[in-house]
């Protein structure tokens, strides 16, 4: 049986704006397994990003508990979470979040500088097909290329989990496919547990499992019997 990487119990997140309380997560129980590629689907405000942020140690839960393997994340302080992120998690964001003043290689190096067992930045960029663009600045690259730099940056530390928040959200179908292929590659080659948030229901077909969100809760979980390649996805 595959190992459980993440486990949550009654996970709740309330945003208090002073006048209104917004329940972004209203009691989520979920498990993510080693080596799986899970797609989190749901409309805006359904709680997907909040969950991903808490799993990645970017945010604190209001109530409930989260474990990464045997490590209880909900018991960690800021320092512990920083350590956890540094050692175990890779992030990919919708808007790439590259540092504009650093080249592709240096953006990857930003991660390898602080990781215990990183890849060579050049190797990570080769993996996403950008070996020839290593010394270009973000402003000199297309959106798809920038996002692939972001993926190279995320995988360069050899993370156990890769958390992607709308990685294709800002891309057209052709570059979107390239990005998804890079993600599937990493998942298959290194067995990295990958969670991908998306609005695009078509993407669900490349996942092992699809987790649907509605109003801060999990509304359904489906297991794909057959997966399709990113190139076959109809956008």
């Amino acid at each position: 049986m595959t190992e459980t990487i993440f486990r949550t119990e009654g996970l709740t997140k309330v945003y208090d704006t002073g006048t209104v309380k917004i329940h972004a997560l209203a009691g989520v129980d979920l498990e993510l397994f080693s080596g799986e590629l899970a797609v989190l689907l749901g409309p805006s405000g359904s709680g997907k990003s909040t969950l991903l942020n808490i799993l990645g140690g970017l945010d604190h839960a209001t109530a409930g508990r989260v474990w990464f393997r045997d490590l209880e994340l909900t018991g960690l302080g800021d320092r512990g979470l920083t350590r956890f992120r540094r050692d175990h998690v890779g992030f990919v964001f919708q808007f790439y979040n590259l540092v504009a003043s650093l080249t592709a290689r240096e953006n990857v190096q930003l991660v390898t500088d602080v990781s215990p067992n990183p890849m060579n930045p050049a190797e990570a960029l080769e993996l996403v097909g950008l070996g020839h663009r290593m010394d270009h600045f973000p402003a000199e690259m297309s959106g798809g290329e920038q996002q692939r730099v972001a993926i190279a940056r995320a995988i360069a530390k050899r993370p156990e989990v890769l958390l992607c928040d709308e990685p294709t959200g800002a891309l057209d179908s052709k570059t979107g496919v390239q990005v998804l292929e890079a993600l599937r590659d990493v998942n298959e080659r290194f067995g990295t547990t990958t969670a991908v948030i998306t609005h695009n229901a078509a993407i669900r077909k490349m996942a092992h499992r699809v987790i649907r969100f509605q109003d801060g809760r999990i509304s359904a979980v489906e297991v794909n019997k057959t997966r399709i390649a990113p190139a076959e996805i109809e956008w």
Binding site: L58, T82, R85, N97, V99, L110, V111
Partner: peptide, 14 residues
């Protein structure tokens, strides 16, 4: 802001 968020997400300390 977003670069600061990124540095933190990557695991740079405060």
């Amino acid at each position: 802001r977003s670069e600061i968020g990124l540095m933190k997400a990557i695991g740079y300390s405060d």
